[in-house]
């Protein structure tokens, strides 16, 4: 029995040690040094709802939110922004760093593409604005109405993509999602981020 207990105890210790090395230690370091950047505001209420839509629709499976350093790839040249730093994510839970770039990085999509119109059309059917896109269409974020109400956001669509009659207007989920995308903007300079003085 002692041997079995020894195996289990040693196995547990090793895993605890690993957690200490690659989770706890770096977290302690980050929590001690990272402060909210001046250029970054907490998400608005609408953007937080939109962020939940982003999570629920699984956008993270194709879009990263972590531009890399120029030494690791041409992210900055593509207009995705400077290399991300830990402080950029201080208001993010769950984190949405992502592991795939089937589509482009989105950490600065709000700065790169600030047009609500563009985002609405793109979400309704990406191929209406990007013919070669393989992103899914999200028609269920919209509804077709006879006539738009005074507060409705009408989606501008080329004839090929427009329904036969009526107008396409954004449902609340689409409005919140777009609000979140617009608030994805980490273009403030990294020097502004206060960090603990390194020795």
């Amino acid at each position: 029995m002692t041997r079995a207990l020894g195996i289990v105890a040693a196995a547990a210790m090793i895993l605890l040690f690993a957690a200490l090395m690659i989770v706890v230690m770096p977290s302690i370091q980050l929590q001690a040094s990272v402060r909210p950047p001046e250029g970054l505001k907490p998400y608005s209420e609408s953007a937080l709802v939109g962020r939940d839509v982003y999570v629920s629709l699984g956008c993270v499976y194709c879009h990263s939110q972590q531009p890399r350093d120029p030494s690791l790839g041409p992210d900055a040249i593509r207009g995705w922004g400077r290399a991300a730093v830990p402080a950029d994510f201080i208001y993010d839970s769950p984190h949405l760093l992502g592991t795939m770039r089937t589509g482009p990085d989105l950490l600065n999509i709000g700065a790169r593409q600030p047009s609500v119109d563009w985002h609405m059309t793109h979400l309704y059917n990406p191929r209406a604005v990007m013919p070669e896109s393989i992103m899914p269409a999200y028609p269920f974020l919209f509804e077709v109405k006879e006539e738009a109400g005074p507060r409705d956001i009408v989606v501008n669509l080329p004839d090929d993509f427009a329904p036969d009659g009526g107008v396409v207007v954004a449902r609340p989920a689409a409005r919140d999602l777009v609000q979140y995308l617009l608030e994805l903007d980490r273009t403030y300079p990294v020097d502004e981020i206060p960090v603990e003085e390194a020795d």
Binding site: V8, A11, A12, L15, L16, A19, I22, V23, P26, S27, L30, Q31, P86, F89, I90, Y91, D92, S93, P94, H95, L97
Partner: peptide
């Protein structure tokens, strides 16, 4: 012993956020 340690720790709600959570 490994699976419960991993699964329970990682699924605890609101333990971390941001970059710490990604680790």
């Amino acid at each position: 012993i490994w699976f419960p340690m991993l699964f329970v720790t990682a699924n605890l709600p609101n333990l971390f956020s941001g970059v710490e959570q990604s680790m």
